[in-house]
Write a protein that binds this DNA or RNA. Structure first.
Ligand SMILES: NC(=O)c1ccc[n+]([C@@H]2O[C@H](COP(=O)([O-])OP(=O)(O)OC[C@H]3O[C@@H](n4cnc5c(N)ncnc54)[C@H](O)[C@@H]3O)[C@@H](O)[C@H]2O)c1
Ligand SMILES: NC(=O)c1ccc[n+]([C@@H]2O[C@H](COP(=O)([O-])OP(=O)(O)OC[C@H]3O[C@@H](n4cnc5c(N)ncnc54)[C@H](O)[C@@H]3O)[C@@H](O)[C@H]2O)c1
Lengths: 213, 213
DNA sequence: ATAACACTGTTAATAAATTAACAAATAAAT
DNA sequence: ATTTATTTGTTAATTTATTAACAGTGTTAT
């Protein structure tokens, strides 16, 4: 393959979004798609799309655009791992359950295979096809099931503790939905997301737009 | 005030995160904070912090860093609106409820004041202090309550329709958690977030890191 | 056949974001 | 007193990301 080793981080992010858009188009029985169509779906420019697609070494056909299935497969070859990767959810509350039920079956190479909680009412139940175990079993199950990623949806007060044990067990990627930032070593990839930041950003631009008229 | 009109978009995002970190520190009874402490909490560099703070025209004191309360207030003056802004949630399912319960009382100037749904079982209930109305009342309530922002948590199949009516009613900012991209006019600020993209990005870097050793 | 059109692919230009570098200031240590 | 440590504020340099420009090429219309 080409030197896909250093794709820009933003391109990686968009590749996932392209695939999502492509899957939607495929569902609508389309076979080909133009850069400007993909661009419109992602609210970006067609040039950006073409440039990204150039970077991953794919070529569309003139006048017909890109072959959707081919492009989906190529994106998969780049962002998925051959063997697939498994994730778990820590904290089976409102958000944890929402995520599990959303994710279920959406992607082939990426699956949520376990949830963990301390509350006895949640433990040993299956929600949206995903079993919830007691947190005490976390280490065992993560190792035996070869889980590489974790989504944190525990209360903020538990975040640090949970992150620490995830690192110890050997988790390599963490998505922290808790409002409490955590620390992990360099070899663990961490992403933190806070809904309030998203909403505050929107609020800022709404205010700003309204002032401009 | 200074020319805060064209703060970089990324800075805006970080201002919200700084405030979150500052509130945590304030809770821990701290009064001052260094750029490197804020940086560590956000996993960025101290220079970045100082630069952002320079951009908003604030000055810390040498050897003591920044006065937490002052900085919180200044950030508020920039990203909040004086009168506050109101948001609603459309789709009172798993995710909608998680969001409402999370948000409740977290910020003073930004509040979720209503939820909407079509399911009669959800309508006319109050969840985490937020009443859920039938979608038919959306237009009326958004106008009467002066709601400016909406968080979309309906099924993907409903996204386009819902976004369209939100725009018609005069909503100025939309946060779309649906996996279906929507289109809005230029004067409406739109942000789309898909958890799968976050997780796929993590998966990519986990794979990449593992290959590097 | 030829012109007009509508695409892609790519290099070059520009803009945005981050980081480096360092002067200035002040507290603490000697 | 003087030196050493820290820490801020700011400009300049660098890196990263986006956009512009345009050549190349099949397709359709004339
Ligand atoms: N980032 C966002 O956008 C966003 C949105 C909503 C909620 N949240 C955050 O996500 C987290 C979960 O929110 P929620 O509404 O689902 O809360 P919740 O209280 O419904 O769920 C938390 C779950 O974690 C479990 N738990 C507590 N301590 C634990 C531990 N040490 N180990 C394992 N499980 C433990 C609880 O039993 C509970 O089931 C909170 O931190 C909340 O602030 C974030
Ligand atoms: N982006 C993410 O990170 C993420 C995570 C989880 C879920 N989701 C998405 O968020 C959405 C909600 O997920 P969920 O798990 O809460 O689903 P859900 O089915 O529990 O909730 C959807 C709610 O919307 C209501 N609804 C349906 N049509 C409506 C309409 N026209 N107007 C108003 N309300 C309507 C339903 O009655 C239901 O209460 C889905 O699109 C899901 O794919 C996104």
């Amino acid at each position: 393959m080409i030197m896909l080793n250093k794709l820009p981080e933003k391109t990686i992010e968009r590749l996932s979004q392209y695939r999502r858009a492509l899957l939607i188009s495929l569902n609508n029985l389309k076979h080909h798609i133009y850069s400007h169509e993909l661009a419109a779906m992602l609210h970006i420019t067609p040039v950006q799309v073409r440039r990204d697609i150039m970077l991953i070494g794919y070529s569309g056909t003139l006048r017909h655009g890109y072959e959707i299935k081919e492009l989906i497969n190529l994106i998969g070859a780049i962002i998925d791992s051959e063997e697939g990767q498994k994730a778990c959810v820590v904290g089976s509350g409102n958000l944890g359950k929402a995520i599990v039920s959303y994710f279920n079956g959406k992607r082939t190479k990426l699956t949520i295979v376990a949830a963990f909680d301390i509350n006895p009412d949640k433990v040993n139940r299956v929600y949206a096809g995903v079993p919830c175990y007691h947190i005490d079993q976390m280490s065992k199950i993560i190792k035996s099931d070869n889980i590489t990623m974790a989504i944190m949806t525990v209360p903020g007060s538990e975040a640090a503790r949970v992150a620490e044990s995830l690192v110890i067990v050997g988790i390599k990627g963490i998505l922290n939905y808790t409002p409490t930032p955590v620390n992990v070593p360099d070899n663990v990839y961490l992403q933190e997301y806070d809904m309030i930041t998203s909403l505050e950003k929107i609020a800022y631009f709404v205010k700003k737009n309204s002032q401009e008229f």
